[in-house]
Simulated assay, not measured.
Amino acid sequence: MTNDVNPHRASGSGPVTVGPIEDPARLPEAVDLYRAVLDLPSGDPAVSPRLLAGLVHNGGSVIGAYAGDTLVGFAYGYVGRDAGTGEVYHYSQAAVVDRAWQGRGVGRALKQGQREYVLATGLTRMRWAYDPVRARNAHFNLDVLGARGRWFVRDLYGPEARGPSHEGPAEPTDRLVVEWDLTGTPSPGAGPSPEPVAGRLPAWGEAVPAGDDLLLGVPRTWSRTEPEPGRAARVRAAVRDALEHALGQGYVAVSCRVPSSPAGEDVPHDTAYYRLRRDV
Rank of each mutant, 00 (worst) to 15 (best):
L51E: 12
L51K: 15
L51T: 06
L52P: 09
A53F: 12
A53M: 09
G54A: 13
L55Y: 12
H57T: 15
N58R: 12
N58I: 12
N58M: 11
N58L: 15
N58E: 10
N58P: 15
G59S: 11
S61N: 08
S61V: 03
S61Q: 08
V62I: 12
I63E: 14
I63H: 08
G64K: 09
G64H: 11
G64S: 05
A65I: 00
D69Y: 10
D69G: 05
T70C: 04
T70E: 08
L71V: 06
L71W: 08
V72N: 06
V72Q: 04
G73F: 03
G73W: 10
G73P: 08
F74E: 14
F74P: 13
F74H: 11
A75C: 04
Y76A: 05
Y76Q: 09
G77P: 05
G77D: 02
G77V: 03
V79H: 14
V79N: 10
G80C: 07
R81F: 15
A83C: 15
G84E: 04
G84M: 13
T85C: 03
G86C: 11
G86P: 06
E87Q: 11
V88F: 11
V88A: 03
Y89D: 00
Y89R: 06
H90D: 03
Y91D: 02
Q93C: 05
Q93P: 00
A94E: 15
A94T: 15
A94I: 11
A95V: 00
A95C: 12
V96N: 07
V96I: 03
V97Y: 09
V97S: 04
V97I: 05
D98A: 03
D98S: 12
R99W: 12
R99T: 14
A100G: 08
A100Y: 05
A100E: 01
W101R: 03
W101M: 04
Q102C: 11
Q102D: 09
Q102T: 09
R104L: 02
G105Y: 04
V106Q: 10
G107N: 10
A109P: 07
A109W: 13
L110W: 07
Q112L: 05
R115F: 02
V118F: 07
L119A: 05
A120D: 06
A120S: 10
G122N: 01
T124F: 08
M126C: 04
R127C: 02
W128K: 04
W128V: 00
W128D: 05
W128L: 00
W128I: 02
A129K: 11
Y130W: 07
Y130F: 06
Y130A: 10
D131L: 10
D131Q: 11
V133Q: 13
R134P: 15
R136N: 14
R136H: 14
N137A: 13
A138M: 10
A138L: 04
H139Y: 07
H139E: 09
H139I: 04
F140V: 06
N141S: 08
N141F: 03
L142C: 01
D143E: 02
V144F: 13
V144S: 09
V144D: 00
L145E: 05
L145W: 03
L145C: 04
L145K: 02
G146K: 01
G146T: 01
A147M: 00
A147L: 01
A147N: 00
R148T: 10
R148Q: 06
W151M: 13
W151F: 14
W151I: 14
W151N: 14
F152C: 13
F152T: 07
V153F: 14
R154W: 01
R154T: 07
R154E: 06
D155W: 15
L156G: 13
L156C: 09
